[in-house]
């Protein structure tokens, strides 16, 4: 009968009949920076997806007659050293960069969540085994592996899907660890014991009771992962180990700046992908922050 007072404090004033997710959504919609970022990201996605309808320029054909043209006229953002239209390549590049980002993020979150939640829920031997495996994956030399695999498989399989597969397989470790630690903490709550005692199967306990309560963490992790993987794709592209040059991506467009004269005298070739990449990453991070804030029960915005 002692600990009566503490519980009264937990009672916060909250709108009637709203699930925790409805509350989070409302908070997010009121966050200006996050909303602006969301609209920007949405615009980038739409423009990239609709690229074929926006521009009719060829993205691969080398055009000797119009190499390194300055912006203006027929080529809004000029052309690169092979005479390809930068604006067109930027739109198509967005498709690839976003495709790689979204697909890899989806796979990484899927693996990470499955491994992390099973390890966290069962604990003991299963946990030990899965976490040993996770450590192994985390300690894998990412860059070396991507480069080696890409070289071996080059020409055998479509380079894009090899890249997506390799990035995904090597990147879920961090998510698995975070999800596991969240699940470990969450399963201490009595509602998990209650779920078991009313006859829920382990799979149901995980999917219906644990995951919805760590979903905020997973969503925030997804945004962080998304940003990180777009950067990773670009970095690989810049180094020349990413998506094959025949397919434009923001990363391999950036690699043009490795040539000194391009970097110094022809900024229209590398600035557009650099700028769009930077703003996209920033938006994703702002959205991530906004989500984190929205899911935090202590923040009242």
């Amino acid at each position: 009968m002692v600990n009566v007072t503490t519980n009264a404090v937990k009672q916060q004033e909250k709108p009637i009949n709203m699930s925790p997710f409805a509350i989070a959504r409302r908070k997010f919609l009121r966050n200006k920076l996050a909303m602006v970022s969301s609209f920007f990201l949405l615009a980038v996605v739409i423009v990239s997806v609709l690229a074929p309808y926006i521009t009719t320029q060829d993205i691969t054909k080398v055009n000797i007659g119009s190499m390194s043209l300055e912006p203006g006229g027929e080529h809004v953002l000029g052309t690169d050293k092979s005479g390809r239209d930068v604006f067109t390549r930027l739109l198509y590049g967005g498709r690839i960069s976003l495709l790689v980002g979204v697909t890899c993020t989806f796979l990484v979150i899927l693996f990470g969540t499955v491994v992390g939640s099973i390890a966290g829920f069962y604990g003991g031997f299963v946990d030990g085994l899965l976490m040993r495996f996770t450590d192994f994956v985390l300690n894998f030399p990412f860059l070396v592996f991507v480069i080696v695999l890409n070289t071996i498989l080059f020409g055998l399989v479509n380079g894009l899907w090899v890249l997506i597969g390799v990035i995904s397989l090597l990147s879920w470790g961090g998510v698995a660890r975070i999800v596991r630690s969240k699940i470990l903490a969450e399963k201490e709550n009595e509602y998990i014991l209650a779920a078991i005692s009313i006859g829920c199967k382990p799979s149901k306990v995980i999917v219906k009771h644990l995951l919805p309560n760590v979903l905020s963490t997973i969503i925030v992790q997804a945004t962080v992962t998304f940003a990180t993987l777009i950067v990773a794709e670009s970095a690989l592209g810049f180094l020349g180990f990413g998506v094959p040059q025949s397919i434009p991506s923001w990363g391999n467009m950036l690699s043009a700046s490795q040539e000194a004269d391009v970097l110094r005298d022809k900024p229209w070739i590398w600035m557009p992908p650099a700028i769009i990449l930077t703003i996209t990453i920033l938006s994703i991070n702002f959205i991530g922050e906004g989500l984190k804030d929205a899911f935090n029960p202590k923040s009242n915005r």
């Binding site: 519980n7 937990k10 699930s19 925790p20 997710f21 709550n189 009595e190 509602y191 014991l193 209650a194 779920a195 009771h209 919805p212 309560n213």
Partner: peptide
């Protein structure tokens, strides 16, 4: 019937 009326109900 559990002790903690807060932690014993799934908030979602």
């Amino acid at each position: 019937v559990f002790q903690d009326p807060y932690a014993s109900l799934n908030p979602t």
